[in-house]
């Protein structure tokens, strides 16, 4: 069969294209972008777009199902004059600072305990993860019963053990309501600290402890001079994540108190939801939500700079 020049030449470009694709992929700069692309696209679609749309909304007088009009910073000015907004700001800072501190100390203690050798350690580790695994809505509904003024198991125990003579109003009293939501948040967030710090603890070589013990270091000294310095970078990262989650917490306060009594437990997220979704004032709701940004941004920048310096 006669083989014409055309039929010989036809496969050549295909092979050439495949080869050039392969060589293109072998270049590190190209390959890394190919690998990064799905993640970047995901972030663009589900993080960057909502974030920038939120900024856009916050500068609009935008009511639900209506076109918006540009109002510049008017929404931010209005919220600065809103007494409830400042109460919400105070609440959010108190909630975040106290809950994060409790989780940090408690989580570290939890990690140190479950890092020890004892019978049933694996089971204990599995159980300690439960608060983190159970969906927040479910566990919060359980807490609703635990803190229910009428049916509270805590009140029942305290009353029957003679420690109190009158039931605590866990969610009716402004101070106790804040204590309650901090308590539930700490309970839920403790395993995150515990397990992450446990992973850090397990990277510390036992030789270090042995050497320190031979040198006469006490348990406290070993903790301060070996454990804590090694854990510090992990502690900072975990704290950063925890602050972000706690600062923007929504489900827990929304289900337990809906911001009550009299706004005593309203946080940025619950207040933004009420304004944006319940009142339909989307622009103002976005502005309240964005009020979280400066504090969180400053924290992230500070911690990142600290880590880089370390």
């Amino acid at each position: 069969m006669a083989v014409g020049p055309a039929s010989v030449a036809r496969p050549a470009p295909l092979a050439g294209r495949a080869a050039s694709r392969r060589s293109l992929l072998e270049r590190e700069s190209v390959f890394s972008w190919v690998m990064l692309a799905p993640g970047v696209l995901f972030l663009l679609a589900f993080v960057a777009y909502p974030f920038f749309y939120g900024i856009f909304l916050s500068m609009q007088d935008r009511r639900v199902a209506s076109a918006g009009t540009f109002v510049g910073l008017a929404n931010f000015v209005a919220q600065a004059q809103d007494a409830v907004f400042w109460q919400v700001t105070r609440n959010t800072f108190v909630y975040t600072i106290v809950a994060t501190a409790l989780k940090m100390v408690g989580g570290l203690a939890m990690a140190l305990v479950i890092n020890q050798q004892f019978r049933g350690r694996s089971l204990a580790r599995a159980f300690l993860l439960l608060p983190f695994i159970v969906p927040t809505v479910l566990s919060t509904v359980a807490w609703m019963w635990i803190l229910d003024p009428t049916f509270s198991v805590i009140n029942w125990s305290l009353l029957h053990s003679g420690l109190i003579t009158q039931n605590f109003s866990w969610l009716g009293n402004a101070t106790l309501a804040m204590v309650s939501i901090i308590m539930v948040n700490t309970w839920r967030g403790l395993p995150f600290y515990g397990i992450t710090l446990l992973a850090g603890l397990q990277t510390i070589s036992p030789d270090l402890y042995e050497a320190a013990a031979i040198d006469g270091a006490s348990v406290t000294q070993r903790f301060w001079f070996i454990t804590l310095p090694v854990l510090k970078p992990i502690l900072i990262i975990v704290t950063m994540f925890s602050v972000i989650f706690t600062f923007s917490d929504f489900q827990l306060p929304y289900i337990l108190t809906h911001g009550g009594p009299a706004n005593a437990t309203h946080l940025f997220a619950t207040y933004a939801f009420d304004i944006g979704m319940s009142a339909g004032v989307l622009g103002m709701g976005a502005a309240v939500a964005l009020a979280m940004l400066p504090a969180l941004g400053a924290l992230i920048v500070a911690l990142t700079l600290y880590l880089r310096r370390e």
């Binding site: 609703m144 003024p149 009428t150 109003s169 009716g172 309501a177 009550g260 009594p261």
Partner: peptide, 21 residues
């Protein structure tokens, strides 16, 4: 009344009524 009502949401009064509180 009693202090708890300050923190009640819509489910609480139903529960308290059936709890004979």
């Amino acid at each position: 009344m009693f202090e708890d009502v300050l923190g009640w949401t819509d489910v609480n009064n139903n529960k308290a009524f059936f709890g004979e509180q």
